[in-house]
Computed example of a mutant assay.
Amino acid sequence: MEQLPAGFFLARQFNRDPYREYARLRALGPVHAVDFPPGAAGFLVVDHEHGRAALTDPRLSKDTAHSALPVDAEVFFGGTVLGADPPDHTRLRRLMARAFTPRRVEGLRPRVQEIADGLLDGLAERGGGDLIEEFAVPLPVQVICELLGVPAEDRDRFRAWTAVITAPPLDADALARRRDVARAFFGYLTGIVAERRAAPRDDLVSALIAAHDDGDALSGDELLSGIVLLIVAGHDTTVNLIGNGVLALLGAPDQLRALRERPELLPAAVEELIRFDGPVERATQRIALEDMEIAGVPVPKGAWVHVSLGAAGRDPAAHPEPDVLDVARSSGRHLGFGHGIHFCLGAPLARLEGQIAIGGLLDRFPDLALAVPAEQLHYQRTGSIVRGLTALPVRV
């Protein structure tokens, strides 16, 4: 079996249109060897059936301590619910879910709408602008800051820290900078936690502090790691959901028109946009706990398994005419939020923000259009698991 190089995920051709490359690979087989992380035995799953199965396979661990190649656990969310296996994962997720409830998320709807409307006012006054920088980025930043009770005067600093932490450290200097920023970030959040312990408020930090289950509660380190994870997981993902989704709709005028004419399709449309060109291109790491096989391909103990959520979303075996955007499609089978016990805890908030953001844009700006040719748009080339545009200039 030919091994894909370490730079596969950084290649310009892949970055521009990963789905064409995934279709080529899928025609050759569902699983391919890949040198990623460099020096590790790695495998890339590019179909829906085996990708979905891998996401729930107990032989695949989220804990990087099982990796045959030593790695920095902090970079891969070590110590958080995202980097843990049962029973630790079960306990951490149960406690976090007691605070981060669907009811709390739904209670944010009026405020999310208010924030989105204010940002749309700014776009209207300017006649357009960069939809990423002026709308898609500040919306989730303001929402998560209000959810956590971060003071307004600290939000620019908060956003700068988040930008560094969400970028993968590709070299020693970037890793050192990330560690410095993480130290400052944790120090800041430690102060927020101390304030909430002394004087609880109606915010998520206070709810996480108060979360108990049969006398069990999050430790101080678990609390801080959980907060950082919610911030990181809820930032780039929502930014890219908005950016990728709007671009997809602008590229399919019939679907844009259908969604404007039938706004009740918005929830289904958001699911379809996640399937079609979702914000998370690959799932977070899985590591083989034993020698095993996936689709007949031998996977040795300690190897890394990468499930491409993007490739699964374009698999014709799971989604008829997968390269066609259809806002009325029933896309309940997509893997954009993962699957199994690691299904995205923040999915309700991402859906809420996506529906309000995209619905608001289409309702407010009937003449919404790209301000530059689509060929001039670029996606971030960082090797990260997320997929998103560097900018999206529009006229409104």
Rank of each mutant, 00 (worst) to 15 (best):
E195A: 08
G29S: 03
S67P: 01
P102V: 09
V205K: 02
V31H: 00
S308W: 01
A160H: 08
L223Y: 05
D130C: 05
P18Y: 05
L131M: 11
E49V: 01
L10M: 08
L309R: 01
V324H: 06
D154W: 06
A199E: 13
S67L: 10
P140V: 08
Y188D: 14
R126K: 10
R103I: 12
A317S: 03
H48S: 04
D221Y: 00
R395V: 15
E353R: 10
L250Q: 13
E106G: 08
H212K: 13
S61V: 10
L259E: 14
D130A: 05
I287N: 11
V141C: 11
L95P: 01
P253N: 13
A391S: 15
A73T: 13
G220W: 02
R52E: 01
V232Q: 05
L392D: 14
A303G: 12
T64F: 04
P320V: 06
G220E: 14
T64D: 11
D323M: 02
R179T: 01
I287W: 14
W161Y: 06
G360W: 07
G83Y: 07
G332A: 15
L148N: 06
A318N: 09
A233D: 15
E134K: 02
D363N: 06
V239D: 15
R157V: 15
W161L: 05
R395W: 14
H334T: 10
F100P: 02
D88G: 01
A248H: 13
R155T: 14
L392T: 11
V324T: 04
A288P: 10
S331L: 03
D254W: 06
D326V: 01
Y22E: 03
V297L: 04
P279E: 08
V75L: 14
L189R: 00
V232A: 09
L44D: 04
V81H: 00
P366A: 11
G83A: 13
E153A: 13
A23M: 03
L189P: 00
D121A: 10
R262Q: 13
R177P: 00
R177W: 00
R159F: 11
L223F: 05
S330N: 10
L345I: 05
D323C: 00
V34S: 10
D254A: 08
S67Q: 07
L250W: 13
